[in-house]
Design a protein around this nucleic acid. Sequence first.
RNA 1: CGGCGUGUGGCUCAGCUUGGUAGAGCGCUACGUUCGGGACGUAGAGGCCGCAGGUUCGAAUCCUGUCACGCCGACCA
Length: 476
Amino acid sequence: MAEKKLVEAITSMSEDFAQWYTDVVKKAELIDYSNVKGCMVIKPAGYAIWENIQKRLDERFKATGVENVYMPMFIPESLLQKEKDHVEGFAPEVAWVTHGGLNPLQERMCVRPTSETLFCDFYKGDIHSYRDLPKVYNQWCSVVRWEKETRPFLRSREFLWQEGHTAHATAEEAEERTEQMLNVYADFCEEVLAIPVVKGRKTEKEKFAGAHATYSIEALMHDGKALQSGTSHNFGDGFAKAFGIQFTDKDNQLKYVHQTSWGVSTRIIGAIIMVHGDDSGLVLPPEIAPTQVMIIPIQQKKEGVLDKAYELRDKLGNFRVKVDDSDKSPGWKFSEQEMRGIPLRVEIGPKDIEAGKCVICRRDTREKIEVELSQLEKAVEEQLKKMQTEMLERAKKHLEEHTYTALNKEEFVKTFAEKSGFVKAMWCGETACEEAIKEDMAVTSRCIPFKQECLSETCVYCGKPAKKMVYWGKAY
RNA sequence: CGGCGUGUGGCUCAGCUUGGUAGAGCGCUACGUUCGGGACGUAGAGGCCGCAGGUUCGAAUCCUGUCACGCCGACCA
């Protein structure tokens, strides 16, 4: 695809990827910076994407029996401290509320960085019998983590997400749910967002504070950096024991529940931008695009042009379609549509009307096609479908082409020095070795993929006997 | 938390070295001509120069302090 730079205001990706990202986020009007450091205003164009993500994910959740609830946003300090690893993991980045109005609180409360403790506290009182299980709750909310370095969507001090929290009678059922939700995320990413992901398990070092096991989906951005795009945790009965969540089972024995939690955040919007975007701006997969088709009238003041544009809009009622009837020039509108990543553009002017045709143009390839007006609906449907499919294919190709293998330390170091992407390599399974790799190469383990391969018998870094194949990478 | 950088109309910035009536481009408003890849003309509106002290006859400019934001690291969804 020819990457002709059409919009001056957007820095090209190859020149400065970080600046490109910021430019796109701003020019596509997804967000604005706010007066609170690290907190962003999500503007209509950005929020509409999130609403679609919510809608499409929520329907997939519900299909697996999930019910939505809402928990308080404050967590008393004593509650946060109940699970040791958990509090150690989150304490450095929580925001504290110390006053109610003018009076100091008896006990300070943090603004939830995540809600495990609240769900546990609730489940303790709500679960008594095996008949009360499983609990498969989810909430859509915002959480606060006092990050030091922030970036729009990728890392902000307050962000929107969903967090599912479940309680089960058996360890097997909890494990099943953990994997089920990871698959829901992975399928959603591929089918709706056109983002291929690597599914796997996190190492001990990278797993969630308090979890027995953490699974994640890892996506590869255009610059070769990895982005953890969704996580699913199996808590075993660790939290249950810390919080005393017990039930009487069928065999009249008192048992602890087994829990899971899983989440996807607005960070995924960052993934959409960095996987699909180009030098002209955002490129949205048709499935998730708030506006799928923008109709741009040419010479709109000429009689009949706008009427025709509105007529086409009504005819395309099955799609999310808009007419840009502002009095900007057509060229302006083209650029605007491209920066915003609207998948399809329909150009309609006097010449077209006379010929009974119009021009449609795909955002990703910029391919222009002349279409008979009578065939427009069909053509739009076809092009949107095709675009969705090809976007996934392109992203898959990028992922494959930027996934390397390394058999020994020399190759490992060399690959990361010369390339950017995932490197598959064997690992001994020791945290000390993983830490040394990070220290030495600024590379972290992304996951231990479910699809294991045996590349060699020894650890790529320390040479000890290898236990697992791991995806390594530089991460956001 | 360390390193770097920036605060001047809505936006991007010039002016600061060497103190002397606040500037440009874009955007905005009105009217007209335009319209197939960011059109043009004419007229207009809009700024106690981040904040607080200080030096000076006089501070956007010099000094001190402070706040905020951005980028790069370490830490994290």
